[in-house]
């Protein structure tokens, strides 16, 4: 199997930077205070400033995040300029992209001119739009719940709908729902809590394993 030099180099850099950052974050406080369980072990390693190096790497990553914001803004503009140039695209779509470009530069101009007005624009337009979409989301969820049984009736889907009905019934402000409330409380405290923790544990294990394998260079998804 041929392995490219560039990939090996990137892997080595990633492994080194990752290992130093983990050590710096894990042992950082001990290095500074000289306390903690690993204080004795760290005496041997005091000449390697893991915490300082980790802090440098973290500061660099914050800088990179800021740079990617610029990349994102450029990406938006390229996408819409590209659409304006497409001959086969419908006029309505081109008009949308044209309005987008105008609003984009207009918002930047407003923000540069007056920061308060820029933030007001965000509050008055974006927050209002997001609220409208939150309402739409409610209908999409209800419509989706209705659709579940249309596609295919399985035991798990039936259980899902029954649980959904139970939750909705328990939320009703009517008296005499004592039994339903008790069942609801039990369902939320035992099966829902256990299921949620199970799913989160699975995700946490997969995340940890992926992290360890990236750190030891076994998963080179960033290079090849």
């Amino acid at each position: 199997m041929q392995v490219r030099f560039g990939v090996v180099l990137i892997s080595v850099i990633t492994v080194l930077v990752g290992a130093v950052t983990v050590l710096g974050l894990l042992l950082g406080d001990s290095i500074i205070t000289g306390e903690g369980l690993f204080a004795d072990v760290i005496v041997i390693l005091t000449r390697i400033p893991f915490a300082d190096l980790a802090a440098v790497f973290l500061r660099l990553s914050v800088l990179m995040i800021a740079v990617t914001m610029l990349a994102g803004m450029a990406n938006l503009i390229f996408v819409h300029f590209g659409r304006l140039r497409q001959r086969e695209l419908r006029l309505s779509r081109k008009l949308f992209s044209f309005i987008f470009v105008l609003v984009y530069f207009g918002t930047i101009a407003v923000y540069i001119n007056s920061r308060t007005n820029g933030l007001r624009l965000l509050d008055d337009v974006q927050v209002a739009l997001e609220s409208a979409f939150a309402g739409l989301l409610f209908f999409a969820l209800v419509y989706g719940a209705v659709r579940i049984m249309h596609r295919e009736v399985t035991l798990y889907r039936l259980l899902f709908v029954l649980t959904l009905l139970l939750v909705l019934l328990a939320a009703l402000p009517f008296p005499g729902l004592g039994l339903i409330s008790r069942v609801y409380n039990w369902v939320m405290a035992v099966p829902v809590e256990a299921g949620a923790k199970g799913i989160l544990l699975g995700i946490a294990l997969a995340t940890l394993l992926t992290g360890v394998r990236v750190l030891v260079g076994q998963d080179r998804s960033y290079g090849q």
């Binding site: 994102g72 990406n75 938006l76 974006q126 927050v127 739009l129 997001e130 979409f133 939150a134 989301l137």
Partner: peptide
Amino acid sequence: RWYPGGENSLA
């Protein structure tokens, strides 16, 4: 493409 998320990713 970047689709800016907003507070609740609804945008």
